[in-house]
């Protein structure tokens, strides 16, 4: 798989369901390139259009993406630095899920917002520590920063809405991403009750 293909297919893998526009926005790849790659993937049966331009990966597609991860990140899977970084992330992840849930259940109380955003900023700084191992993760920093900016401008949809590149969507994808880099099944990674 070319890097372009990997980025595009991985984006759908992480989002589970997406339009090519969303893939382009998240990866930074130009729309035309994305459309070309995805058309090819559809033709080869890796991507399926389930209606209204929403795309999902077929079993073959998932298989292919996971295969790429195994190859590209074989070294990272043995790397203690990445492992430690992930442990640190888990702590932050529990806090994040708690704060978002709290915010949602309080009817969207804006004073909880500050706490949430400071958490995300912490994540952005943490990403800075892993960029040398996984350069691709620079895109997540940018996406988080843009989402924070949008929220600071009053566009609250950028907190949790699945219709835009919201903080929760980015975090959700990132979590899936780092788990896949580490070759871990999801079950093990759910937050403790």
């Amino acid at each position: 798989m070319t890097d372009e293909e990997f980025l595009a297919l991985n984006s759908i893998y992480l989002k589970k369901i997406a339009t090519s526009a969303a893939v382009s926005a998240s990866t930074g790849l130009p729309e035309q390139a994305v459309e070309r790659v995805l058309a090819g993937a559809e033709a080869s049966g890796r991507v399926i259009d389930v209606g209204q331009g929403m795309l999902m990966l077929s079993e073959d597609g998932v298989h292919a993406v996971l295969g790429e991860f195994s190859e590209r990140y074989a070294a990272s899977r043995e790397d203690q630095v990445v492992e430690d970084w992930y442990k640190r992330f888990e702590l932050l992840n529990s806090q994040f899920l708690k704060v978002v849930t709290d915010w949602q259940q309080d009817g969207g109380d804006l004073s909880k917002l500050e706490r949430l955003l400071k958490l995300v900023e912490r994540q952005v700084r943490a990403l800075g520590h892993i960029i040398d191992r996984i350069p691709r993760y620079g895109v997540y920093s940018q996406r988080f920063t843009q989402a924070i900016e949008a929220v600071d401008k009053g566009q609250i949809a950028y907190l949790v809405s699945p219709d835009v590149d919201s903080i929760h969507s980015i975090w959700f994808e990132f979590h899936e991403d780092i788990l896949t880099v580490l070759g871990r099944p999801r079950d093990v990674a759910e937050p403790a009750e």
Binding site: K15, I17, L97, T101, Q105, P162, H168
Partner: peptide
């Protein structure tokens, strides 16, 4: 997640807490 995006009407899970990605998405 795709089922939620495409209009699922209700969900039952056998594990996982309301403070999880699925909980957050279901509220959204």
């Amino acid at each position: 997640a795709p089922a939620l995006s495409m209009g699922a009407i209700g969900v039952i899970t056998m594990s996982g807490a309301p403070e999880s990605h699925l909980g957050i998405l279901s509220r959204e």
